[in-house]
Amino acid sequence: MNSVGLPHFLIVGAALFALGMVTVVTRRNAVGILMGVELILNAANVNFIAFNHYVDAPGRLTGQVFSIFVIVLAAAEAAVGLAIVLAIFQTFRTIDVQETDLLRE
């Protein structure tokens, strides 16, 4: 296969997903974990748009619509998640997720 096709984009998406997952499981900094979640959402978006371009019927935009919704939800998730991180920091004075194991002050 000479030119770039669907599998190339899927492999990039897979690499993004894997690296995001590694970020989520190896970080202890809560902000780092949120960055990993963003990477995973981006991987999903790459797959959505690649399938929309290569597999969906011409003129249909289901994948792009879904990717827009994913971006909207990622923005909401980032805002709420970082607000929670700030609240945790104000309560425990740390954002190490292994030390913040209480639901009360």
Binding site: P7, L10, I11, G13, A14, A15, F17, A18, L19, M21, V22, V25
Partner: peptide, 12 residues
Amino acid sequence: GVLALATVAILS
């Protein structure tokens, strides 16, 4: 790293 490689291999 092992986890990432395994995931990339399977998904690819």
